[in-house]
Design a protein around this nucleic acid. Structure first.
Lengths: 217, 217
DNA sequence: ACCTGAACACCGTTCAAGT
DNA sequence: ACCTGAACACCGTTCAAGT
């Protein structure tokens, strides 16, 4: 697969724009991972010199923040008119998908600290749902962060461990030292969809139990 | 605070040992953050030349893996003889403390992928507790990963956002676009202990509800 | 206004050579 | 066996200069 085919290049006319730089940067990460993203390679792909980038972003961290925003923007969209639980579920699934869609998406989002449009929009939607559930104001905030931390942690694990050879681990695992691990099905660790589904359901069940019991409208 | 006072130096006799290198590296991170850790600075602090490190670790990633193990080792220790819920709770608290004790601990652990002694020991203890709770084998695995992902995500957030000026966010927050955010107490986001306590309790409640209902022994 | 050329102060890593 | 000296191929970032 050439760079051109996978969209890591940008035929440009006129001055360098933020979106172009961000899109190209994300495409580069998709090709070679986050550590392969350098200002030099990026400027190369854009057909400019490194200093040209510093007219668009003050430094690499600012670029990474913008990339995080772009990744999170993938989780935006209209929500179904439904009860709070299904809305949280939908938002959680979307957030996870947005992180997984981009190579190293979780690391990009987790590393950046941005409080801009997509972050705020997602947080607001989640808060809206939690408010409806009948949490106190603080509890609603913490319900949001709980869901978010779980999603981020799971995506991080999934995108991190790409080529674990579970066979090796299983083979070299000293069964008498770790009796429970030895007795459990290690491949279940790699079934990330099931992991996520289980965890999200667990958290939802916990939230259902923890919320103040308002009479349903 | 000088480097010597904070333990980032090591008077050495005899050849360079793994522990010394790892301890010094962690001390350097405590001083200046993960990005300040370079092989050159590390060798400087150890009183050697950079190539000497490559006789102890094949590359920087291997060193980071060993650092992750050392951080996780902080969560080891004897467990109280108690029901599965309190054991999970104790393990979760310890794991979080171990991550927070070391600057950038969550990033070090989240970035490494090691399946060595401390990781396995912690996983085994958690699995033991989950098994007792009456989960199926797979569900027990996923219960462990759920707790772990949440802990990692929370620690990452806490260690990442060190100097957020919530005042600024609050002040510039367009209230009509994010009505729920505007109505909720943003400072609750920085009460990381309460966030964690809420989340862990939520997950525990969810696990209690989701487990197979065996008769108590 | 927007970009290039050239440089600065770093990186991780390798390799020959020293003791 | 263990380490040093010197180098290679990179980094992010700055700054003068070009158009």
């Amino acid at each position: 697969m050439s760079i051109r085919e996978s969209g890591a290049t940008a035929a440009r006319k006129g001055p360098l724009r933020q979106d172009t730089v961000v899109d190209t940067a994300l495409a580069l990460v998709n090709l070679g991972g986050l550590e392969s993203l350098t200002m030099r390679r990026l400027s190369d792909t854009l057909g400019t010199q490194p200093p040209a980038l510093y007219r668009v972003f003050p430094d690499k961290d600012a670029l990474l923040d913008a990339m995080a925003d772009a990744v999170l923007a993938g989780a935006l969209g209209p929500l179904p008119e439904a009860d709070w639980e299904t809305r949280v579920h939908v938002l959680a699934d979307r957030l996870r998908s947005a992180l997984l869609r981009q190579r190293d998406g979780a690391r990009i989002v987790g590393g950046a600290y941005t409080t801009r449009q997509p972050t705020l929009a997602i947080a607001d939607s989640l808060l809206s749902a939690m408010g409806e559930a009948g949490f106190t104001e603080k509890a609603a905030m913490w319900a949001v962060t709980t869901v978010f931390s779980f999603i981020l942690g799971e995506a991080l694990e999934q995108q991190g461990r790409t080529d674990v050879d579970l066979e090796h681990v299983k083979a070299t695992l000293p069964a008498q030292e770790y009796p429970h691990l030895a007795r459990h099905p290690l491949p279940a660790l790699l079934d990330f969809d099931a992991r996520f589904a289980f965890g999200l359901q667990t958290i939802m069940a916990g939230l259902r139990a923890a919320r103040a019991h308002r009479p349903p409208a």
